[in-house]
Design a protein around this nucleic acid. Structure first.
Lengths: 237, 237
DNA sequence: CGGTTGTTTGAGGACGTTCAAGTACTGTGG
DNA sequence: CCACAGTACTTGAACGTCCTCAAACAACCG
């Protein structure tokens, strides 16, 4: 684990408040590895051996329809449940609770990842008040992300979900015209938003009616508040 | 706050490890109140003034389609996102982060609820390692509940979601015949499972084909493993 | 230029919702 | 105990959304 990795790791809120001795011990136990696109960090059902900290790149959490344990069924529909980027931690819950993962994780953009052994992390939870507090706050934020998604999934249509996603990308801008960059390819985005790639295409076409236009990976929102209204957006972060 | 309430409160994992002094202070600041069915504890967008601890009864977290802030639109579709029972805590994330609620909460079964002031809870997170650790573990479990739901929502059909819910009720029994009690009325259950009440009816009818029969609020599963297979259940808790 | 991959478009169908009507259940007052 | 009202639940038909499959198209790369 080189010096740059170490300092990046310890700049994260989760680790920043820890005493140097603890951090050094953590580093000794762990390692950093670069992972190409499509590398699988772990699979649904695996026990959590490491806490994965993303130093660069992106990782998608996904679930498959038929049991991952039973490799027979061919169709294997899959759904992306969450996407994590640099500075984030992949599924702390399984690590903290020492329970098997509910989902699998796959690299979707070449990533540099720190592997910190799970027992060490659980020791940290037990021994460090600062770590426990930061972990609680992080998990609270992650809970809200999932809650928001579940809400969208249960009561908004596909184009509305797309619109809401664009609004989170345009985060901050509250009116007028904005350009936003889609951070993923459309297949990935579709899966995350809970729709087929075909239906994402149609949703994109649909949003033209409320003044949203796509050119490659760039979306132009002509009037943020118009899209807002269309999505029944509620302003809550 | 009477003695019975106090001891019930302090038997919860979240509070059990705390020193008596802290607990007493918490009780002084808070109060306990009985709430009838349909009482609203808070609404989407409210700032989190209390941590609500359920001593008895049930509370549903729900979201509405059109902004709760704008009372004009009539249809107001709503979806239940989570249901909490005795011994659980209603939306710790908003309290810990000091952010507005993303959802509203309504009593669905007459409840006795402890209201603990949010600032006191945040102090606890700052001052008590035990509380911070227990909070992190609780939030980790709650994250998994939502993740599981999101997974179901994105890749399973309505009858499969119902089947999976029955299996969680039959929790533990791994084969043979089981009877389970539905803890809610069908309207509530339908909303929680992300379907219309009509579609819940049809899903119930559907499950007869895999040997599940309903009589009022009792469901009889003839063969757990058969239902298991039908739902593409993955065995993960 | 052909092959590969990613996106779009169209047709058909499955799933789920809505609206409307019918049936069963529950409690109340006669 | 029964009649009744009110509620919950079920059933049916029509519609809408989204998915699947297939084909057309575009972009990229050898």
């Amino acid at each position: 684990m080189n010096q740059a990795d170490i300092s990046a790791l310890f700049a994260l809120p989760l680790f920043a408040p820890l005493p140097v001795a603890m951090l050094e011990q953590l580093c000794e136990q762990g390692f950093v590895h670069s992972e190409p696109t499509d590398a699988v960090l772990f699979q649904e059902g695996d026990s959590a051996r490491f806490l994965h900290v993303i130093l660069a790149g992106k990782v998608a959490l996904f679930a498959t329809a038929s049991s991952a344990l039973d490799p027979s069924r061919p169709p294997q529909r899959e759904a992306i449940v969450e996407i994590f980027s640099a500075g984030e931690v992949v599924i702390a819950p399984a690590v903290l609770l020492d329970m098997p993962y509910l989902m699998s994780a796959r690299v979707i953009e070449p990533a540099r990842i720190a592997f910190l052994p799970a027992p060490g992390i659980r020791d940290l939870l037990r021994d460090s008040h600062d770590f426990a507090r930061e972990a609680a706050l992080m998990l609270a934020r992650h809970w809200r992300l999932l809650a928001r998604q579940l809400k969208d999934q249960k009561l908004r249509s596909a184009p509305q979900r797309l619109g809401r996603y664009l609004l989170t990308l345009a985060n901050g801008t509250s009116s007028g015209r904005v350009e936003v960059d889609l951070p993923f390819d459309r297949r990935t985005l579709a899966s995350w938003l809970g729709m087929s790639p075909e239906n994402l295409s149609r949703s994109i076409a649909q949003l033209a009616e409320v003044g949203v236009h796509f050119r490659g990976r760039v979306a132009t929102i002509e009037a943020v508040d118009r899209l807002h209204a269309y999505c029944l957006e509620d302003d809550l972060r």
